[in-house]
Design a protein around this nucleic acid. Sequence first.
DNA 1: TTGGAATATTTACATTGTTAAGTAAATTTG
DNA 2: CAAATTTACTTAACAATGTAAATATTCCAA
Lengths: 212, 212
Amino acid sequence: MGIAERKEKQKNEIRQLILDASMKLFVEEGFDSITIRRIAELIEYSPTTVYLYFKDKDEIFYALHDLGFEKMSEFNHNLDTIQNPLIRMHKMGENYLRFGMEYPEFYSLMFIMGEPMKKMSELGCDWKVGDAALGRLKETVTDCMEKGYLAKGDPYQVSLAVWSFVHGLVSLAIRQRLEKFVPDEKMLLPTMEQALNWFMNNIDITERKRPA
Amino acid sequence: MGIAERKEKQKNEIRQLILDASMKLFVEEGFDSITIRRIAELIEYSPTTVYLYFKDKDEIFYALHDLGFEKMSEFNHNLDTIQNPLIRMHKMGENYLRFGMEYPEFYSLMFIMGEPMKKMSELGCDWKVGDAALGRLKETVTDCMEKGYLAKGDPYQVSLAVWSFVHGLVSLAIRQRLEKFVPDEKMLLPTMEQALNWFMNNIDITERKRPA
DNA sequence: TTGGAATATTTACATTGTTAAGTAAATTTG
DNA sequence: CAAATTTACTTAACAATGTAAATATTCCAA
């Protein structure tokens, strides 16, 4: 079936073309600039051709959302060498903040916008990429508990808390809710990192053993 | 100037009519159902009449966003009688979670969507409602520090952290990012409250003074 | 009464996602 | 190889949207 195979490959090539074009619009001109017509223009096909490769616009969003998770995992390559689980977790949080601030559009798609999730629940799927990411956090949290850095408890519960915290910071920041709070844009990420430090200090129980 | 006054009043009446219609659509059919044409239909005017009272759609969103803050402050009436600042802060957090889960559309407008903020920065305004709400949190945080419940430090910094935490919970929940994590929808709010408990326990330094 | 301001509507435009119908080329089939 | 069919794509069109310009109506003061 060499022919069917080549066909398949070509189909995927155009799919990729569409995604590349969407990405380009996404990154260079922001979210609202992704229109079927502009995508078509970029890939030099007619608008309706896009629908031969994606059922609707939301399906494109979902694909981009997936790409976002790939990009985020690149940010986490620096975790492998860190032995101390609490420091690893801290670094993980910093990476998360940095990713969100550097790629706010991706972040929106991954963690804020409704469209990708709607598409996903249509397909009966279960947000594999998101759960995988959360799974890595859970491992680290478990490790922290075993080694006595965090109070023993439900690692899921604690993972949810940690995730919520950093997500809260990023999503408030990229949706302009901290502008009055942190007027100087350059101070945004540092302020968020400081908040993370405070948080990590508070949940670390090793400190409590030291006398005041 | 009795006449000009009545005129003014009538103008405001129609403005109010428009906002009421928007609210109705908002609450009963969700965000995307707010269209100028449907608003016009409800108030029995032509679509373009709406533009005599609001410059554009975003200005309506901004007004609704303001109403959301009013509604949220209703949720906080139960705080007045609480003496202990840490418990007050805890309750404040619970109220925040409950408000977000009960009025997700309002919450989106207030803390997630870009439109109201865009309109605001056009007007050179400074998110008074948001800052006021954060101000009340800051007071409580300061109170907690003075009374020895929280480690002394920058109250703004800590307020940001607390706010980010609860915002993270709510925004993940209402944007369907916790569905796999908490499959049973009824467990959503309880799980979030549990996370808040964990958080409050961790930042409360009075506990540290007790021996393990 | 009349002229002008305030208020409202009609018409229109550009943009959007998406569907239906049509076409030309490639492929399969007899 | 010729006919039939499938594939890949385009053209045309629809319905909904936000919004602007032109037009009509209402209303009050001179």
